[in-house]
Nucleic acid binder design. Sequence first.
DNA 1: ACGATATGAATGAATG
DNA 2: CATTCATTCATATCGT
Lengths: 210, 210
Amino acid sequence: MEPQQQQNQQHPNEDNNGGAKGNFICRQTSTRWTPTTDQIRILKELYYIKGVRSPNGAEIQQISTRLRKYGKIEGKNVFYWFQNHKARERQKKRFTNDVPTQQRTTLKPEDYYSYKYSSSNNNPGFSSASSNAGAVTVGQTDNYGYGSVNMQEKKNWECSVPAGGSNGAEGESMSNINYGSRLGINPYSSSSYTVFDQDLEAAEKIETLP
Amino acid sequence: MEPQQQQNQQHPNEDNNGGAKGNFICRQTSTRWTPTTDQIRILKELYYIKGVRSPNGAEIQQISTRLRKYGKIEGKNVFYWFQNHKARERQKKRFTNDVPTQQRTTLKPEDYYSYKYSSSNNNPGFSSASSNAGAVTVGQTDNYGYGSVNMQEKKNWECSVPAGGSNGAEGESMSNINYGSRLGINPYSSSSYTVFDQDLEAAEKIETLP
DNA sequence: ACGATATGAATGAATG
DNA sequence: CATTCATTCATATCGT
């Protein structure tokens, strides 16, 4: 994910053999989902192009169904993928912003790879709200009169019913915020500043740390 | 890992230039961060002496800024360093401790297959739709009847479908099959909006998405 | 030169 | 959403 190039993905095996387990026990080698390149490609398209960020249950279903064509996949995989992708994007930004202002007098090598891909999406990216806007009107709104469906958590993809909880869609609309977030200060800077209360560096000793 | 002591002079020249092999503008192919001895020393001090384990965004920034003095470094490097350091420490401990059935004749240390120890759950549960795994227990039910696994959370990934519909999960359960099945999306989404308004897949390429 | 190791990087899966 | 854990891939480095 990084601007870093070496991205070779780690899905050595386009397996699908997953099924392997057909047999008995066997060490389920590979417990976790290993997306195929096509799956990843599509997920990214959805993310960057269509602006999908937090798909709701129904959307997750559609997506996973669609991706199933390229390999084994479950709804939760899709769910986690979006969650992680979004989270990491933000996280990175959090500890990445160096130097508040654009005052970068001396260019350091590290500047090269800050952002590399297309500019358009760089920032707010998803401007392409396109999809959401229209797409998500989702019928979830009405609860089937079930009263309280009980699935307290709104994780019901894979479930047929689009339970009302899903937020996803709406929430996402707020995506275009953030515009200004790149000021010098980030909201996350917790109060804790100074990991270095003193000069640890000066404390040169402890050569023997593990 | 740690036992490795000699990181002594691996840096002939505290190169600051990131040691990148020359300019990596063109070919930034993979130059991963190689911490200088001073950076490592400080990181360890922070880790062992100050107890820093999972620095937050702000701390990461401080640290990396501070360490920058000794060589090129980015926030993510610091982030990963702590993550890895903690993880490996834990992992190592896992061996020494556990080792229920030794039998490790010639296994390399990496061979281990760990069991989960304390910590969280292990609810592999989700038999996963794609059950390639075992055989078809198509039976939906989550917990194998083991009694109460106590689904800590009421997350229902893969709830079995309610009434007859297609239920993605089951259908899919048979290994990769199912290929032909969907097409028309699923019944439930009656009026659905679809994330795929068109053939995104067809819109191939855009490989460059981050 | 290799092969083994140590460790940076990435990411799926969870938990809170 | 933020954070954390576990695993795995990739590669820099060291030993022989």
